[in-house]
């Protein structure tokens, strides 16, 4: 694929970003990260309080990507088969089976949105893990494939009752965990409250230009990006040092206030996590019109691709978000390149 085509796709990507930024204001960084994950073909976990615009954000992206969009709400009584099919008695009085959210769009499924994933049981998580990892599912004696699917999930970190913490293995399947916070800008906050266009979410999402991207070409183009954007030896060494630092932060002089660093990290970033980080960094370099990955590209995705993969001692799990942020900032500050 020529540089012209790379530039053409970049324009589409920036258009998508621009469209989403119109309906979800004050979230430029999460929107850039989601764009990155779409082109890196990685699943996204959104974390944020209630009513901050997570669902609106994902619906806006879905409209821009095109393809099939399915959504399911995580509840404590949700069972794995609820994702695959549902049964009902038809008008003829006979039992009928209909495809569930996963199967309904077939291979055209481009976005599967799992709302409040931490309210679902571990059995549901297990099914989702397989679907995320293999993009396939066995049902009705048939293997179903979802080659274009990206899973967006969100979880509410405030409420803990009747929730099931996502295990580290499940978290590791997500390319990114992106925090969504309320913007600090007074003008934006005022607009969100008083501007009536933000009151009707359906109408708001409908303003997004549809099918900006061709969802069924994203996989192929993602490979082009990964093959086109280079990583120098210096950058590889830098990434390697970052990885080592996630495993043994104390070796790099990284400290977190109020934490015994010798006991903090049970497991650093996984090889899959690091490869996902570099995939995302390559996409970030491409979005910034570069031919090679710079340390700044890694920094742009480092927190969102690594923080949720770290496994801390249970005593520090309650402060995971805060500790992970401080530790990863310390690692970026401590590791030099070149």
């Amino acid at each position: 694929m020529s540089d012209v085509q790379l530039a053409d796709w970049r324009n589409h990507a920036l258009t998508l970003e621009s469209e989403v930024n119109k309906v979800v204001v004050g979230q430029q960084t999460p929107i850039r990260l989601i764009t990155t994950s779409i082109f890196a073909r990685g699943h996204v976990l959104l974390e944020g309080d209630v009513g901050v615009g997570k669902t609106t954000l994902l619906r806006a992206f879905t409209r821009g990507i095109g393809g099939g969009y399915q959504r399911i709400e995580g509840t404590i009584d949700l069972m794995p088969n609820d994702l695959v099919y549902h049964t009902y008695l038809g008008e003829d009085g006979k039992p009928h089976v209909s495809p569930g959210p996963l199967l309904m769009s077939g291979e055209n499924l481009s976005v599967f949105f799992f709302n409040e994933i931490n309210r679902a049981r571990p059995q549901v998580h297990s099914l989702l893990l397989r679907v995320m990892a293999e993009r396939s599912l066995s049902a009705f004696n048939t293997e179903h494939y979802f080659p274009h699917m990206i899973v967006f999930a969100d979880r509410n970190q405030v409420e803990k009752e009747e929730t099931f913490e996502i295990p580290s293995a499940a978290r590791d399947r997500f390319m990114m965990e992106i925090p969504i916070v309320v913007p600090n800008d007074d003008a934006i906050m005022e607009a969100l409250v008083f501007d009536t266009k933000f009151h009707n979410v359906d109408a708001l999402v409908d303003t997004v230009k549809p099918d900006v991207l061709q969802f069924d070409e994203l996989n192929a183009f993602s490979s082009v990006i990964q093959n086109s954007i280079e990583a120098s030896d210096t950058l590889k060494r830098y990434a390697l040092n970052l990885w080592k630092a996630t495993k043994a932060p104390l070796d790099y002089g990284v400290k977190v206030s109020g934490v015994d660093m010798n006991r903090l990290v049970l497991s650093g970033a996984s090889p899959r996590g690091m490869s996902m980080m570099l995939r995302a960094a390559r996409v970030n370099a491409w979005l910034n019109n570069r031919n090679a990955v710079l340390p700044d590209d890694i920094h742009a995705v480092f927190h969102s691709t690594i923080a949720h993969r770290l496994v801390f001692s249970p005593v520090y799990e309650m402060r995971r978000t805060e500790i992970a942020r401080e530790m990863l900032s310390g690692i970026v500050n401590a590791v030099a390149a070149p």
Partner: peptide, 11 residues
């Protein structure tokens, strides 16, 4: 300059 020397020779 650092970008050209260490990361992206074509820059």
């Amino acid at each position: 300059l650092s970008r050209q020397v260490y990361f992206e020779p074509s820059a």
